[in-house]
């Protein structure tokens, strides 16, 4: 009975038990809900699914969700790298405090984050008042959505890149310097390639998280159809109409697009590994 795939592939004991627990938990927590969603989609049929998704309002919600998530994650990619770099490479007063504060977006209920950001960026808020003379309105526009998603996604980039920067060997940079490379060149040709896989992972995590973000965004977005209405809100609206099929259709559309994007990021990662070599 213990033959076949369950035969321990390594001399380390405990494979059967730990594999069993892993598969059970994974099924209950991840595979079942996604399976249920896809099962619902299969029951509806691809033609009807397409009909339900193919409307101007849903497309503008989907493009808004993915565009905002992409912009926020790109911002986080740059800013998160800088933040991680500063935290690892420099010693300054308050460093540990900032280090701990990076995790706050993980811990804070997203609704609280959304309300706090809205209060700050609303036209009568502290930042909102300062930005108003420049003709810039943040809350209740698409920019507000970016701000919320930047807040949500930041720790993902920082926390994936930070340990890799810590592991960077100073020797490499010193060698590079003794061989005559300037600082910018060392940064570009020595350090960045080493960090690329971690950066891409952090970017992918932040992106995946912010595409589906609901709690914080609905407070700061104006939720106007075609302009500031995100796809997750549209799902909730369909549910309020007891239209479970249409809700599932939008959910599946998001799942498919997310999956394609993560696949693309993985492909870039594999390609960059092959080019740079294993790090």
């Amino acid at each position: 009975m213990r033959a076949g795939i369950l035969r321990s592939p390594s001399p380390l004991p405990g494979f059967g038990l730990s594999f069993g627990i892993m598969m059970t938990v994974l099924s209950i927590v991840v595979l079942l809900p996604i399976g249920a969603l896809l099962g619902r989609g299969l029951m509806i049929g691809p033609a009807d699914l397409w009909d339900m998704v193919n409307s101007r309002r849903i497309w503008s919600a989907l493009t808004l969700s993915f565009r905002a998530a992409l912009i926020a994650s790109l911002f986080n990619l740059v800013f998160g790298l800088m933040l991680a770099w500063v935290l690892v490479r420099y010693r300054f007063w308050g460093r540990r405090f900032i280090d701990a504060a990076v995790d706050l977006p993980f811990a804070l209920p997203t609704a609280v984050a959304g309300i706090a950001l809205t209060a700050l960026y609303a036209p009568n808020g502290v930042f909102g008042q300062a930005l108003a003379p420049l003709g810039l309105q943040v809350a209740y526009t698409e920019i507000g959505i970016w701000v919320a998603l930047v807040f949500i996604g930041l720790p993902f980039v920082v926390r994936t890149v930070q340990p890799v920067i810590e592991e960077l060997e100073a020797d490499l940079e010193e060698v590079s310097a003794t061989l005559g490379a300037r600082r910018a060149y060392t940064l570009r040709r020595v350090i960045l390639p080493t960090l690329t896989p971690a950066l891409l992972t952090g970017f992918a995590l932040a992106l995946a998280r912010s595409v589906g973000e609901y709690g914080s965004v609905i407070f700061i977005a104006g939720n106007i159809p075609n302009l500031t209405e995100i796809a997750p809100l549209l799902i909730v609206i369909r549910l309020e109409e007891y239209n479970y099929d249409a809700a599932a259709a939008i959910g599946i559309a998001m799942l498919v697009i997310s999956f394609a994007m993560l696949l693309a990021i993985n492909a870039i990662q594999t390609w960059s590994r092959r080019r740079i070599g294993l790090v």
Partner: peptide, 11 residues
């Protein structure tokens, strides 16, 4: 003329 469409009355 509605700039913000909240999800509930309290909102």
């Amino acid at each position: 003329n509605v700039p913000v469409l909240d999800t509930g009355a309290r909102g």
